[in-house]
Amino acid sequence: MSRKTSVRHFEENLSELETIVAQLESNQLSLEDALKAFEKGVKLSQDCQSVLTQAEQKVQILLETNEGERLETFDPESEQ
């Protein structure tokens, strides 16, 4: 799968996951439908995590091969 395809699928999966979360939070689904939606949401979440992990690995490789620079751990608390 090409990078553009991966990104497009990631964005589509993330959007669909957000829709599923909203449906589950609305408490409007039957138990059976909620379980199906939850199962699909777990699959979408795993797919998104896989794409993010691959992207992180690519960034690490690029930084390590670019003048010996290392990827630093992001700390959101220090950014404020």
Results as ranks from 00 to 15, higher is better:
residue 75 D to S: 13
residue 11 E to R: 15
residue 55 A to L: 13
residue 25 E to V: 07
residue 73 T to H: 10
residue 8 R to E: 12
residue 25 E to R: 15
residue 71 L to W: 01
residue 75 D to L: 14
residue 63 L to D: 00
residue 36 K to T: 07
residue 48 C to D: 01
residue 23 Q to W: 05
residue 35 L to W: 04
residue 22 A to I: 08
residue 61 I to M: 04
residue 24 L to Q: 01
residue 23 Q to F: 07
residue 67 E to C: 02
residue 2 S to T: 06
residue 43 K to I: 10
residue 45 S to E: 09
residue 2 S to E: 08
residue 40 K to C: 01
residue 61 I to W: 05
residue 64 E to G: 07
residue 74 F to H: 11
residue 25 E to P: 04
residue 51 V to P: 04
residue 38 F to G: 11
residue 56 E to I: 08
residue 63 L to W: 00
residue 76 P to W: 11
residue 75 D to T: 11
residue 20 I to S: 02
residue 2 S to Q: 03
residue 47 D to H: 06
residue 62 L to D: 06
residue 10 F to D: 05
residue 20 I to V: 06
residue 15 S to P: 00
residue 71 L to Y: 04
residue 9 H to W: 10
residue 34 A to I: 02
residue 15 S to K: 14
residue 34 A to G: 07
residue 3 R to C: 09
residue 80 Q to A: 15
residue 36 K to L: 07
residue 48 C to Y: 00
residue 76 P to G: 08
residue 46 Q to S: 05
residue 1 M to L: 08
residue 61 I to Q: 10
residue 73 T to S: 13
residue 24 L to E: 00
residue 56 E to V: 07
residue 71 L to T: 03
residue 68 G to D: 00
residue 61 I to A: 11
residue 49 Q to L: 11
residue 31 L to P: 02
residue 51 V to H: 09
residue 63 L to H: 01
residue 37 A to W: 03
residue 56 E to D: 13
residue 42 V to F: 07
residue 50 S to G: 11
residue 53 T to A: 11
residue 15 S to D: 13
residue 34 A to W: 08
residue 33 D to L: 04
residue 24 L to V: 07
residue 79 E to R: 14
residue 79 E to Q: 15
residue 19 T to A: 12
residue 57 Q to C: 02
residue 78 S to R: 14
residue 71 L to P: 00
residue 52 L to V: 13
residue 51 V to T: 15
residue 41 G to T: 02
residue 27 N to Y: 08
residue 30 S to V: 00
residue 22 A to H: 06
residue 4 K to S: 13
residue 6 S to M: 13
residue 41 G to I: 01
residue 34 A to H: 06
residue 19 T to Q: 06
residue 6 S to G: 03
residue 11 E to F: 06
residue 69 E to W: 03
residue 40 K to I: 03
residue 12 E to N: 14
residue 7 V to Q: 10
residue 67 E to D: 07
residue 23 Q to T: 02
residue 18 E to G: 04
residue 77 E to S: 15
residue 42 V to E: 08
residue 23 Q to L: 10
residue 32 E to H: 08
residue 12 E to P: 04
residue 2 S to H: 06
residue 48 C to W: 00
residue 10 F to K: 01
residue 2 S to W: 04
residue 23 Q to N: 04
residue 52 L to A: 15
residue 10 F to W: 14
residue 57 Q to N: 12
residue 62 L to M: 06
residue 6 S to V: 10
residue 74 F to I: 14
residue 17 L to M: 12
residue 20 I to F: 01
residue 25 E to D: 15
residue 42 V to G: 02
residue 73 T to Y: 10
residue 53 T to V: 13
residue 63 L to C: 01
residue 56 E to C: 05
residue 63 L to V: 00
residue 48 C to E: 05
residue 54 Q to E: 08
residue 13 N to P: 02
residue 1 M to P: 04
residue 67 E to Q: 06
residue 61 I to C: 02
residue 72 E to H: 11
residue 32 E to I: 03
residue 14 L to V: 06
residue 17 L to A: 11
residue 21 V to H: 12
residue 70 R to W: 02
residue 20 I to L: 12
residue 54 Q to C: 05
residue 50 S to H: 10
residue 72 E to G: 09
residue 60 Q to K: 07
residue 63 L to M: 14
residue 21 V to S: 08
residue 13 N to D: 15
residue 14 L to H: 13
residue 6 S to E: 15
residue 6 S to R: 14
residue 14 L to S: 10
residue 43 K to M: 05
residue 39 E to D: 10
residue 28 Q to Y: 02
residue 43 K to C: 03
residue 38 F to V: 01
residue 56 E to L: 12
residue 32 E to Y: 06
residue 78 S to E: 15
residue 9 H to L: 15
residue 41 G to Q: 01
residue 71 L to V: 05
residue 35 L to A: 07
